[in-house]
Design a protein around this nucleic acid. Structure first.
Length: 488
RNA sequence: CGGGGUGUGGCUCAGCCCGGUAGAGCGCCUCGUUCGGGACGAGGAGGUCGGAGGUUCGAAUCCUCUCACCCCGACCA
């Protein structure tokens, strides 16, 4: 066991914090609720960003950038939206500092008060729709498919690195369409993109679903989500895609002239994923030895460690392996640091989640082999140097697939159908995970269950089979099961 | 905003009750011996003890005020 990390079964939160710190993903900043994302953590985010960005481009979107600061008045234009965000906005009130006349350093210059206060964006719907009003005149301007990569700020009460920070990085797509149908299709298309990304890059199985009214985005008609299950049995909302109807179009007066020369409000969507995904990645795969990264999101996929230290004979072999791997588009590092011992490096690379480690010593070279260790199972095997590139490529694919299978198996084992409230409580407390149960469809029942158990309805799965039953709390008739869980 | 806690080298903390030369481990630097799973030895650098005020011959230690952070709850991605 790693001597750096609190075991998961002892204290899951401490384990998570240890991983973040010891794998050099992020550290706390001087400002409460903010974090410094360190190079290793940022590299993971960059891989996520690049993969998603390519998927957005493929589905016809382009990137733009809207400002950080939003006039306060914009936020109040859509009633639901204000309610949702007003409580957690940072507000810029002044534009100048001055030396404290009493010698206490710098203070806010009271004479520099802003005429209209500015909000640091908690999300960009308002400023974007205010802008779209001028960009959209005709049906020929539609659909408008724009994404932005940005930071946003929500003044959170309690924060955890990556999972919930006051400032976080994300992408937000904002699209405008001529018809409701197109907008709904777009909403679902992007949900599919997220699910595809989560499963094929993050190796994190997700359930696609729609949120109940309680959990819906402020200002949306429908909020769709992908929900993942973490190793401690708590659910994580990993991405959301909103059908906004004409709410923002009406609030910001965004209209177009149709082919029939009719003035109509546009239909809108927005969708986003954030650095929270890094937290989800950690909690899906990692173990008591440290971070475990799926090969597709590993900043470096393979490390070669010379045993005991770099020397010409080993360097030559390492160079040759590196060329072979790079020809196969595998990222590789040869660790030539001779100030650290091999054992230390092994532990350190495991801590950082490197998927594959190759160790080479003179003994191996004599036998024309290398020792290969895979991070997911921590198995070590000896493989031939002949064709090692393809062996490693195959291994990386296996690891990616194995991580997904493992996570999916855990997830599937932790979806429990229950038909009584006693059972509901029992499963929630002892087995944890998702609970599939009938619900009478009312916000009151959802609220009562939340108060009694801390579990919320994570989603109503898409393509949910209809099934007659009775609500697990009230006994009223229900047409389908929904997924409950405690959530991050 | 309630309840609990902590501020002492880069990190984790001891010292405080009972005032008297600021300590340990880890990390860092140098040299040497090592090296197939987190090496060992010797030497070395590094702190106005969160801040302000007070008591005292003398304050990390006692008193007052203040600031910050962490954990647990109410809000959220």
């Amino acid at each position: 066991m790693s001597k750096e990390i609190t075991p998961r079964n002892q204290d899951y939160s401490a384990w998570y914090n240890d991983i973040v710190k010891k794998a050099h993903l992020a550290e706390n900043s001087p400002v409460r609720g903010c974090m410094v994302i360190k190079p290793h953590g940022f590299a993971v985010w960059e891989l996520m960003r690049d993969a998603l960005d390519a998927m957005f481009k493929k589905t016809g979107h382009v990137n733009a950038y809207f400002p950080l600061l939003i006039p306060k008045s914009f936020l109040s234009k859509e009633a639901q939206h204000v309610d949702g965000f007003a409580k957690e906005c940072a507000v810029v009130t002044h534009h100048r500092l001055m030396n404290d006349p009493n010698g206490g350093g710098v203070v806010v210059d009271p004479s520099a008060r802003l005429e209209e206060e500015l909000i640091i964006r908690p999300t960009s719907e308002t400023i974007i729709w205010d802008t779209y009003r001028d960009w959209i005149q005709s049906y020929r301007d539609l659909p408008l498919l724009i994404n932005q990569w940005a930071n946003v700020m929500r003044w959170e009460m309690r924060t955890r690195p990556f999972l919930r920070t006051s400032e976080f990085l994300w992408q937000e797509g904002h699209t405008a369409h001529a018809t409701q149908q197109e907008a709904v299709e777009e909403t679902l298309r992007m949900l599919d993109v997220y699910a595809d990304f989560a499963e094929n890059f993050m190796a994190m199985p997700v359930i696609k679903g729609v949120k109940t009214a309680n959990e819906r985005f402020a200002g949306a008609e429908d909020t769709y989500c992908i929900e993942a299950l973490m190793q401690d049995g708590k659910a994580l909302q990993a991405g959301t895609s909103h059908f906004l109807g004409q709410n923002f179009a009406k609030a910001f007066d965004v209209t177009f002239l149709s082919k029939e020369n009719q003035r109509e409000h546009v239909w809108a969507t927005s969708w986003g994923v954030s650095t929270r995904l890094v937290g989800g990645l950690i909690m899906t795969h990692s173990d008591d030895e440290g971070l475990v990264l799926p090969p597709k999101l590993a900043p470096i996929q393979v490390v070669i460690v010379p045993i005991p230290t770099p020397q010409p004979e080993i360097n030559d072999v390492a160079e040759k392996i590196m060329r072979e791997l790079r020809d196969l588009n595998i990222t590789v590092k040869y660790d030539t640091d001779d100030t650290k011992r091999a054992g230390f490096k092994f532990a350190e690379y495991e801590l950082r989640g490197m998927p594959v480690r190759i160790a080479i010593g003179k003994r191996d070279i004599e036998n024309n082999v290398a020792e290969v260790a895979r991070r997911d199972t921590r198995e070590k095997t000896t493989i031939s140097l002949d064709g090692i590139g393809n062996s490693i490529k195959q291994l990386l694919d296996d690891i990616q697939q194995n991580l997904y299978n493992r996570a999916k198996h855990y997830r599937d084992e932790h979806i429990t159908r229950v038909d009584s409230f006693d059972e509901f409580i029992d499963v929630l407390e002892h087995k944890t995970g998702f609970i599939s149960a009938h619900w009478d469809g009312t916000a009151e029942t959802e609220e009562t269950i939340k108060e009694k158990t801390k579990a919320t309805i994570r989603c109503i799965p898409l393509n949910n089979p209809h099934e007659d039953g009775v609500c697990v709390l009230t006994g009223k008739p229900s047409k389908q099961r929904v997924l409950f869980a405690k959530a991050y």
